[in-house]
Design a protein around this nucleic acid. Structure first.
Lengths: 345, 345
DNA sequence: TTGTAAGCGTTATCAT
DNA sequence: ATGATAACGCTTACAA
């Protein structure tokens, strides 16, 4: 048969794992010296340190973080919660986070909330068992009970993406409203007067973008409720096509559509191609986030470039400052956005 | 100033954290009873258990996994390594993995290798410190030294995506060659005779697909080296367009292109639109993976649907079996693929 | 520069 | 059903 069941952990007494003590005995020093040899090489005589290093390699030593966390009261774990991994925006944010965390020896504990404050709280609760040194949350739309939970254990938190102005709250992101205004203004500047907004997911960022859109059109005296289409479904290219069709039914004279993200916008673009609607001739289309592929579509998609990679890095930086008790210059960092006008408008 | 530096961990003696002992004292039992009340509720008198539960809630108890791992020699950590998060394929695989792991109380430690065996080894090394109960690797293209590293600590491993036939190795995936053959056969069946292959990243899966393509064409007596374009760059929609252009320069009479993944294929499609090349009239285009958006492009993209979500689930299932010493029916599980013929061919 | 002692919070083991 | 005790592997604090 083919069953050789690998017994995960076994071996008689002890765990069988090579420990600092094992090395210490072999080298003829105490275990604390071995520990120091790894953590503060300068505090150990060169000759001893080299011997320790060699023996450790020979024996295949791997440190045990559980023991280390327990003894030092520093887990070196950072909890990072994002709404989804299916949206490249968050993936790129994580990328930035990790670029900062890993070199400093921190481990990222990743959680996906599926845009649900309930799941977010459940994840926070579960991850608190890892004794995290800090927490990175996406957005500010968390439950009061989640906040209390975190407050209880006194762990620093930084919010990514959205900005706050509350004292004692830390955030790195950009103004979703302002970004949406920029896109709406752009469409107005292109001479569009019957501008629609299509949004899905309806998380706090989408709602903020919708506000930016609405405020701008109201100021221009061009706001019409029937040009707004908001659905709770999760975003996808396919959904973009469906929503475009639905919108054109309820407001056929629309001359521009601002999609709340590029996935939807691309779907809208494809649907136009399919329907023979000329873009931007008959209809201008704008997206949000400026996904890499958005520059490649035909026509290329106008979008708003958001600095998610930087948001990840700066959030992590700020969090580390808080953890170390270093002063942070500003509690709220606005990284801004950049409009990317292309052929679709 | 605005600096209230949050001291991460503080409070006088002890760590300040609520422990099993704290609860035990309050309830008037021993700490082991409290521990049991959580882990094996049936082993504790109802009345006592309820009291413990209540007090724990009141005090805001959160268990400490470091201590638990240390004492129980079971970390409940599973290391999962994927090449990239920018490729939806792996994200969906992770989704499947997590769907299985989380309900069982396991924590996924995610690592991104960037398609590099070196980075993979570094990650394995780093994650071994977490004393993982199991490891999930993407592909089988790992270094010999990585294998030894893992063997040393005797942790079960399951490989995702690619299949092996080696004894003592566990894998869940599908035959990349067979899948590529299916696409190539399809193009042949559509009457194409000058079929090109465009690949990037050049990881072992891309190479396997290329073999499937090549073997099929050789068998048909239609293989021509100049119709192969392989570059090490990472895949993207933008790259697809560039490579299509390059290929058509070196082999202008090509009548079909098999892209090694959908990202590239979509880029190719867009480029055709831009150049006015009719698809599938002049040129048929096939992709791989069947990304959700591939059904929406114009024309819709023919692709090969791969069962990555299931691969994630089944891999995790198999790993848990190995961890628990349960017999696994088969060491290698082939989940197969499905050709999705659409308008682009 | 090196070592001793104690403890981090939990669980396995063996008793009661 | 509950408890006493001893680890688990490491680090802090203090001493030498």
């Amino acid at each position: 048969m083919n069953e050789k069941p690998i017994k995960a952990k076994a071996r008689a007494s002890s765990t069988g794992r090579v420990t600092l003590d094992d090395i210490a005995r072999r080298v003829g020093v105490s275990s604390i010296t071995v520990s120091r040899a790894f953590r503060r090489p300068d505090k150990v005589a060169d000759e001893v340190r080299e011997r320790i290093q060699r023996v450790a390699d020979e024996m295949g030593y791997v440190s045990n973080r559980a023991a280390s966390s327990l003894a030092s009261a520093r887990s070196m774990n950072i909890v990072v919660l994002v709404p989804s991994l299916r949206n490249m925006v968050f993936v790129e944010t994580l990328d930035g986070v990790e670029k900062v965390l890993r070199p400093k020896g921190y481990q990222m504990l990743l959680g996906v909330t599926n845009y649900s404050p309930e799941e977010e709280e459940a994840l926070v609760r579960a991850y608190l068992a890892f004794d995290p040194d800090g927490i990175l949350l996406t957005g500010m739309n968390y439950r009061e009970s989640t906040r209390r939970l975190i407050e209880q254990v006194r762990v620093p938190v930084v919010h990514m993406m959205e900005l706050s102005d509350r004292e004692g709250v830390y955030s790195v992101g950009f103004s979703q409203e302002a970004a949406a205004e920029a896109m709406t203004e752009h469409l107005l500047a292109q001479g569009r007067r019957r501008i629609a907004f299509i949004g899905s997911q309806l998380d706090s960022r989408t709602l903020a973008r919708n506000r930016g859109y609405r405020d701008t059109l109201m100021r221009a005296g061009l706001y019409e409720p029937r040009r707004e289409l908001m659905v709770p479904d999760s975003s996808s290219v396919a959904l973009g096509g469906i929503l475009l069709e639905r919108l054109l039914q309820q407001a056929p004279d629309t001359d521009a559509i601002f999609f709340c993200n590029d996935d939807l916008a691309q779907g809208g673009l494809f649907e136009c191609l399919r329907k023979g609607i000329s873009v931007p001739g008959q209809l201008a289309i704008g997206g949000f986030n400026d996904l890499p592929s958005s520059a490649c579509t035909v026509p290329a998609l106008t979008s708003v470039a958001t600095p998610r990679f930087d948001i990840g890095m700066r959030s992590a930086d700020m969090l580390l400052s808080l953890i170390d008790g270093r002063p942070v210059a500003r509690q709220h960092i606005d990284l801004g956005v950049a409009l990317k006008p292309r052929q679709s408008t």
